[in-house]
Computed example of a mutant assay.
Amino acid sequence: MTAPAFSTCDLCDAHKSDTSGAFRVLPPVFHGYGGVAKFSGPVSTVKCFEDNSLVKQALDEPGIVETPHGRVGRVLVVDGGASLRRALVGGNIAAAATKNGWAGVLVNGCVRDATELAACQVGIRALALMPLPTDKRGEGQRDAPVQVQGVWVRAGDWLYADADGVVVMVRPQA
C-alpha cells in the first residue's frame, strides 16, 4: 500500500463550517512514534485503563479490510483514559500491528520502546513515552464509542493523521 493522498489542513479547509459532528479534529497533544508519519483508515476502538490485553488482541488480528476505496489498513484508536502511568503499546505489539497490516494506532495514553516503535512500518501516535508496562487483566471494551481528549470516535469512522494533526470523519474523504 502506498502513502495515503490527503492533507489534514486541506480536510479542515473543506470541512471548517461542518457543525454536524461528522468531521472532528483532535487536540494537538499527540506525538508520532511509529515508522510511518502519515496514515489513514477505518477506525476500530479499544477502551481500557492501564491494561493492554484488548489492544494486543486487536492488533494480533488482520488489519486489512475491503472498502469501497479498495483494501486498506485499519486504525486502532485506544482510549486509555489519558493515563500517563503505564504504556499500552510497546515494540512487540507494534511489530504485530505492522505484520497484520494495520495502518496506524492512536493511543490516548502512553507507549514504550521508542526505538522499536520507530522501526515499525505503522503509524503510532500517543500522548507520551512511559517505560512501565501494563497489568494484564483482560479488561476493557472493543469497538465501543470512545472519547479521546473530549472528541467522540466510533468504530467505522475514518481517521486521518499527518504532520499537521489528526482528524476523524464519519465517511472516507471523497
Rank of each mutant, 00 (worst) to 15 (best):
I64Y: 10
P62K: 05
G81T: 02
E66W: 09
L59T: 11
D60L: 12
V78H: 01
N92D: 12
K99C: 03
P68T: 10
E50W: 04
S53M: 11
V89W: 00
G101F: 02
L84C: 07
V77L: 02
A103N: 14
A82L: 01
N100C: 06
D60W: 06
A87D: 00
N52Q: 10
W102M: 13
L54M: 12
R74T: 12
G91L: 00
R71C: 09
R86M: 05
G90P: 00
V65S: 09
V77G: 00
I64N: 07
N100W: 03
G80D: 01
D79R: 00
A103I: 12
F49T: 11
D79N: 09
A95R: 13
A97C: 12
S83N: 06
T98G: 05
A97S: 13
I64E: 14
L54S: 10
C48F: 06
N100Q: 15
A97W: 03
A103K: 08
W102K: 09
I93F: 04
A97I: 06
P68F: 11
W102P: 10
N92W: 04
V75W: 10
N100I: 02
V65C: 14
I93V: 15
E50M: 15
R85Q: 12
T67S: 15
D51A: 06
L54D: 07
G101T: 08
V55L: 11
V65Q: 04
V78N: 00
Q57R: 11
T98F: 03
H69G: 07
G63V: 14
D79K: 00
V78T: 06
G70V: 09
A97G: 10
